[in-house]
Amino acid sequence: MRSVELEARFPGVTQDDAYARIGDFARYSSLVAAVRRVTVHPAAQPGQLHSDWEVDFRNGVLSWSEADHFDDERRLISFAQTTGDFETFTGQWGVRTDGDGCAVRFGAKFDFGLPSLAGIIDPVAERVLRETILGILDGLLGTGPVSTDGIRVGT
């Protein structure tokens, strides 16, 4: 299974504001060209959503549905694919106060379930995911983070 993790700091953006903006998945397609569509469906229980995603990938489109869980107290959003093009896709957004602003952490693990193509597809997926997340954060929280620390990709 492959993973991508990054943390970015945003001065002047409060933890609560960042958390609310990150949780507005329906806006993502207006922020980054690679995100074609996100359809959000309310779940039966508070703090939960279901969302359907379409994202450009190489010469095609990745599609999946996920269950999203919001922990407002801890400012964490966890997600797990329920159906779609990945064999496994899970992750989490976390927001915390950092000085006069906030720090946003994103982490995801994924597996396409194609071991024979993993050496070709996985590095491209890591790059696309990282670039897409940084683009989303830039669009949601301002003109770009002051710093991005702890960026890590790999197995």
Rank of each mutant, 00 (worst) to 15 (best):
D100Q: 14
K109C: 14
T88A: 10
I120D: 01
F110A: 04
K109H: 14
S116H: 10
G113Y: 09
F110M: 05
T90I: 14
K109S: 15
D98R: 11
V128H: 01
G99R: 13
D100T: 15
V128C: 02
E126G: 08
W93M: 04
A103Q: 02
G101E: 02
F112E: 02
F89C: 06
D111K: 11
L114Y: 09
G107L: 13
L114Q: 13
P123Y: 09
I121N: 01
P115Q: 05
A125V: 08
Q92Y: 02
G107K: 14
V128R: 00
P123K: 09
V95T: 04
G91H: 02
L117V: 15
V124L: 04
P123Q: 09
V124G: 01
T90M: 03
P123H: 08
A103L: 03
D98A: 14
A118W: 03
D111T: 15
F106L: 11
R127D: 08
D100E: 15
G113D: 05
D98K: 08
V124K: 03
F106Y: 15
I120P: 00
D111W: 09
V124S: 03
K109R: 15
G107M: 14
T88K: 11
G113W: 09
R105D: 00
P123C: 10
D122Y: 06
P115K: 07
S116Y: 07
G107Q: 15
L117E: 06
V128A: 05
G119A: 02
W93I: 10
R96M: 02
S116K: 10
V128D: 02
F106G: 07
V104T: 11
D122R: 06
G119H: 03
D100N: 15
G91Y: 03
D111C: 14
F106R: 05
D122S: 08
V124P: 00
D122H: 06
S116G: 08
D100L: 13
A125P: 03
T88V: 15
E126C: 10
G91C: 05
P123I: 13
R105G: 04
F110I: 13
T88H: 08
I120H: 01
F112S: 06
D122C: 07
S116F: 15
E126H: 07
C102Y: 04
G99M: 10
A125I: 07
G113K: 09
E126F: 07
V124W: 04
G99A: 15
F106N: 05
A103E: 01
L117W: 08
L114N: 11
R127A: 10
K109M: 11
Q92H: 03
L114S: 12
F106P: 04
V104E: 02
A118Q: 07
F112T: 12
T88C: 08
T90V: 15
G113N: 08
G99F: 12
R127I: 09
V128Y: 01
G101H: 06
G119C: 02
D98Y: 12
F110K: 03
F89H: 08
G101W: 03
